[in-house]
Amino acid sequence: MSDSAAMIPILPRPLAAGLGMLPLAPLGYPLSTLMRRVIARNPGLIERLGPYRACRFAIDPTDLPCTLLLHPDPVRAHVSVHSRPPEAEVRIAGPLAALIGLVHGAYDGDALFFSRDLVIEGDTSAALALRNAIDDAELDLAAELALLAGPLGRMLDPLIDMVARASGVSLRRVEQNG
C-alpha cells in the first residue's frame, strides 16, 4: 500500500482527452458484462451490499471526462458511461488510480477520505456498504478481464500491462505480503 496519498498517480491529460473523444455509450456493454461476471463469481459481494444493491452508484474518476453509473442489483445489473454526472443515490469521486486501487486493496478508503483524495456524496451507508463489499471480494480486474476474454485471455496480459504503464493505473491486485 502506498504510504502517502500524494503518490496516487493522475491519468496523463493527453490520454484522458483521448479517452474523452471515444463514444461512451458502447462502453456500457463490456463494462456491464464484466460487472455481471464479477457478481456471479463473488456472491458474497451482493450479500454484503444488502439492501444497497438496489442503489445507483456514480463512480466519478476525476481525471477522466466521464462518469460510470453502476447498478449492481443482480436481476438487472448494468453499467452505463456518461459525459455528465448522472442521477444516482451515491457519488464516489477520486483519481482513477485511487478508485481502482480501492478495488485492488492498494489503498485504504478512510485514508483517501482523510487526505481528501476521495469524495463521497449522497447515501453514506450505501457508499460504505459498497466499499466494504468490494474490499472483502479481493478482486483482480486484470484477472477478471482475462477470464472474460476466454481463450484469448492470456493474450490480453501484454495489453493490460501496456495500458497500466501508459496510464500509471495498476490494473492488477497488489499482493499484501511484503
Partner: peptide, 13 residues
Amino acid sequence: RQRSRAYVGQVVR
C-alpha cells in the same frame, strides 16, 4: 475494524 484490508496489512506489519 471499519478499515480496509490495506490498512490492516500495513499497520499490523
